[in-house]
Design a protein around this nucleic acid. Structure first.
Lengths: 143, 143
DNA sequence: TTAGTTGCAAAGGCTTTGCACGCGC
DNA sequence: GCGCGTGCAAAGCCTTTGCAACTAA
């Protein structure tokens, strides 16, 4: 998959390489669409002393550096994070269990929709969220 | 515009008609994409005693009843509300000043994208957020 | 009358702030 | 050694909860 190590990503963004930042990136690679709390939990083995506010600080720095993307979905009251991938993908979200999966853009690398009325704004990117029911929830009758 | 009064909307949803609910709907008609706090501020003249938690309760009830839609946008740390319109529109958001405008769906009334990989989920709806720079911000050099 | 609503204080959940200490470069 | 990063307590912001008082039907 990734030819580029976490360390290289950090260096080329001008950020110092610390155990905490590398561990956050590792956790993100393992669990995409994770909230800060889940990353924190997945980290505590590797970096025992780390505190939740530190994880928030790190994901903020990484987001500002363009290494990480913050995803905010309807009815999810907290930010989810994923490693920035440059593949213009979007998200499907089960309205029942909340599971989130990636959806490659239907058209290509460019934003896959063109607004018919852009109110004079110059569009930078489009993000699409599909709200859906996953098979398990449908089978279990969780509508 | 609206042939249907707020009162009628409430009644047909099986909700009691109260001054507070009508005032919230009025405020929403005046200011679309407003957070609960702004609705509360816009209401205090008309319904002096109303408290912010009450506004939250009302928009929640109206959202559950399908009269109001909750909109959650990237980098907006709180929910915005608008009157449910059944016109399948989406949103453009200026990344600089935060202004939000409606965007009619580019393709039609149906969700305008078909996920190439739906992970076995049955898609209910698609919501699209365009991130953009508005003319004012671009002129003022607020990139 | 009475079940649905409201007022509002208090609590809850996520995130940011602040500053002393620590460590990458 | 210099500064950027981290640890973590405390604060901040938005939203929900809980319950007594109220009111639409």
């Amino acid at each position: 998959m990734s030819m580029v190590t976490h360390e290289e990503r950090l260096r080329s963004a001008g950020l110092r390489v610390t155990a905490q930042r590398v561990a956050v990136l590792d956790a993100l690679a393992r669990q995409p669409h994770a909230p800060a709390e889940a990353l924190h939990a997945g980290l505590r083995e590797r970096v025992p002393g780390i505190a939740l506010p530190t994880v928030h600080g790190i994901v903020n720095d990484l987001t500002a550096a363009g290494i990480v993307r913050r995803v905010s979905l309807p009815d999810v009251g907290r930010a989810l994070y994923e490693i920035e991938a440059d593949d213009n993908h979007h998200h499907v979200q089960c309205v029942s269990c909340g599971r989130v999966e990636d959806v490659p853009c239907a058209v290509g690398a460019a934003p896959c929709l063109h607004p018919s009325h852009d109110h004079g704004m110059r569009v930078i990117e489009a993000s699409v969220t599909y709200r859906a029911i996953c098979q398990q929830c449908e089978r279990n009758g969780n509508v």
